[in-house]
C-alpha cells in the first residue's frame, strides 16, 4: 500500500508541481521552438516520454550496479550521454521501420532529442534526489516525460490561438511565447504545496 501511495504521489508531484518545464526550465528550447502545432507537439512529447523512461531506467541501473561499486562516478556524465544517445537511436530506428510518415514529419528534431535537457535532467536529478528504488526511478522518469508532454501541448494549444491575437510587431514570435510561458508558470505555481 505504501509503495503504491508513494508512486502515485511521486508521479503527481513531478507532473504538476515540480513540472520540469515550469519549475526547472528544462526542455525550454523545444518548448519555444517546436510547439507551433498541437499534433506535432503531442508526437514530440510521446517520443521524449519514451526516451526519458528508457534512459532514466538504464542510467539508474548503470549508476547503481556499475559506476558506484567500481567508484567510477567521474565518468558519470559521459556514460549518461552514451546511454541517451543509444536510446534515441533505438527510437529513431523503430519509428523509421514501423511509422515512416511520423518519422518523416519529425525530420531533424528526432536526433536532436539527444540534446533535450529533460532527458539528461531526469538522469541527473534521480541521482541528486538519491532515489534508491528502481520502481521509483522508472516512475519519476515516466512522470517527467508526461510533464513535458503536458507543458508542450498546453503551449501548442495557446500558440494555435495566438495567431489570431493582435501582438505588437516587436513582440511577435519568441518574445510573446516567453511571456505566455511566464504567465503559465504563474498558473502552475498554484499547485505548489499541494504535496510535500
Amino acid at each position: 500500500m505504501d509503495t503504491i501511495q508513494m508512486l502515485v504521489l511521486g508521479f503527481l508531484s513531478i507532473v504538476i508541481i515540480n513540472n520540469f518545464v515550469f519549475t526547472k526550465f528544462l526542455g525550454t528550447c523545444p518548448y519555444i521552438g517546436v510547439s507551433g502545432r498541437l499534433d506535432m507537439a503531442f508526437g514530440m512529447g510521446l517520443a521524449v516520454t519514451f526516451v526519458t523512461t528508457l534512459s532514466g531506467a538504464m542510467t539508474f541501473l548503470l549508476d547503481e550496479y556499475v559506476l558506484m561499486p567500481l567508484h567510477l562516478e567521474v565518468t558519470r556524465y559521459v556514460c549518461y550521454i552514451l546511454v541517451i544517445a543509444g536510446a534515441v537511436q533505438l527510437v529513431e530506428m523503430y519509428l523509421r521501420k514501423y511509422f515512416p510518415p511520423l518519422y518523416d514529419s519529425f525530420g531533424i528534431f528526432l536526433p536532436l532529442i539527444t540534446t533535450n535537457c529533460v532527458i539528461l535532467g531526469i538522469c541527473l536529478f534521480l541521482d541528486q534526489w538519491q532515489t534508491n528504488n528502481f520502481l521509483e526511478a522508472v516512475n519519476l522518469s515516466f512522470g517527467a516525460g508526461i510533464g513535458f508532454t503536458l507543458a508542450i501541448c498546453i503551449m501548442a494549444g495557446i500558440r494555435e490561438n495566438l495567431v489570431f491575437a493582435d501582438v505588437p510587431p516587436c513582440l511577435q514570435g519568441a518574445p510573446i511565447t516567453l511571456i505566455t510561458a511566464g504567465l503559465l508558470t504563474l498558473a502552475f505555481m498554484g499547485f505548489a504545496g499541494m504535496i510535500k
Binding site: 516587436c170 513582440l171 518574445p175 516567453l178 510561458a181 511566464g182 504563474l186 505555481m189
Partner: peptide, 25 residues
C-alpha cells in the same frame, strides 16, 4: 518577489528579446 521565481525569468527574457528586436529594426 516574482522576479526570483520562474515567472520573472520568462517574462523578463521575453521583454528583453522584444526590446532587442525593436532596436535591431
Amino acid at each position: 518577489a516574482g522576479m526570483g521565481m520562474p515567472v520573472g525569468a520568462f517574462v523578463t527574457l521575453g521583454l528583453l528579446l522584444g526590446l532587442a528586436v525593436h532596436l535591431t529594426k
